[in-house]
Design a protein around this nucleic acid. Sequence first.
DNA 1: TTTTAAAATTTTGCATGCAAAAAACATTGA
DNA 2: TCAATGTTTTTTGCATGCAAAATTTTAAAA
Lengths: 233, 233
Amino acid sequence: MHAKNIDRRNIYEYYTLVYKIEREDLAEKAYEALKLMILRGELPSGEKLLQESLAENLGISRTPLCSALAKLEKEMLVTSLPRRGFYVNRLSLKELLDIYDIRLRLEPLGAGEAAERASASQIADLESAVNPPALAGVTENYRSFKEYDYRFHSLVMEISGNSFLSRMIRSFNIISLGNMQHFFKSPEQSIAEHRSLIEAIKHHDKTAAEKTMYTHIVHARQVIEKKLREENG
Amino acid sequence: MHAKNIDRRNIYEYYTLVYKIEREDLAEKAYEALKLMILRGELPSGEKLLQESLAENLGISRTPLCSALAKLEKEMLVTSLPRRGFYVNRLSLKELLDIYDIRLRLEPLGAGEAAERASASQIADLESAVNPPALAGVTENYRSFKEYDYRFHSLVMEISGNSFLSRMIRSFNIISLGNMQHFFKSPEQSIAEHRSLIEAIKHHDKTAAEKTMYTHIVHARQVIEKKLREENG
DNA sequence: TTTTAAAATTTTGCATGCAAAAAACATTGA
DNA sequence: TCAATGTTTTTTGCATGCAAAATTTTAAAA
């Protein structure tokens, strides 16, 4: 069944790279679908996820859905209350700040690595992500902005070549975007910052890329920190 | 069923805190069991996980086991090859280094927060973790050391109060420890470094705690980096 | 009207069974 | 001997059904 020139001992590594992408099971598809629904706000944070109806909507049975929910739980996108059900994770301000503390340390790391490694085609991908066709509606409504922002950050982390980092940051970005109902800074400013990050990456300037990403995230973090202080009086 | 003085609107938050711990489902128990088996090396990295026999050994059916494996997959402890099965994740040196890059950024963050927040009883917990009764066998065999090291780092991250950080680092530590077959530095040195971290936390010295944790991890990272360079010639 | 208790309904968690895919094994022909 | 093909066995992924728990509804008492 498998290609003949692949050493038996390396079959694991081989399939890890190539085979996986094509053949996805229902649990993985449901997981992806739910993630997108959370990012889009179609499943608002705090909402209870009814297994029967969700499964029906997705056109699958509860078995793969359960696995999908288990995955989301470990990525902290949903919370499981045994015998009570799954809920889309709703973050307190403190928790949102916790996530930003993590992003603030990790995304600059990823941006720096991306600056070191980025190929010409990867840079082209980045540029097309911030150019007009991809920006439709982004400055007008927050929902479009979220998807755009998620795409851009995912792309940078992907380019870093650190798959652990990339997967983790993707989850965290969905959690945080899913828990934010309005612009934390103007979308124009975000896009401008994204563009200057691309410049740094283009010039393979690791330090500049790190700094730009840091500044980009620390702004939002400061807004959250201020809110939290106000909340606590 | 639930306490009467809990506001209906807050029931979600209430149960998130208290209810969850007691009632664990089989999938979660299996997940915990498998994690421990990976940490202990009872499931060596690269090993294929046969669902039928694993389920039988755990005394459960394949349904909750599947959910447990799905969880482990999203925490990157196992790899799923659709229709082929699950394998304990085996890391390349590059991947191990990727994980250390993440730990190097995040664990100092956690250590610093822990230094700020640690209560007297939490400090006592830390101290008892590095005192003789808890150190049995740790300097002699690597397997005991792994469990000790995992416990200590988990404890520090727990004290940081950032639950996202804590959960993530726990996974990464299991992956990395599960993929290391021998001491990267002498256990005595590790324990000494742990002790000086406790000192910093005790004095609520955030900067010192961050630095100590950084140094502690960067040593191991350098060993890996060197190996990787040798491997690539 | 509110509070409490009982009954009915819904929902969850799990084991099981089945179809399809993959792996292991056997057979044939070079 | 080895490669290629066919056959059997194993394993995976999923839908389904059932028991127990949780929730909602209804009824009764304060």
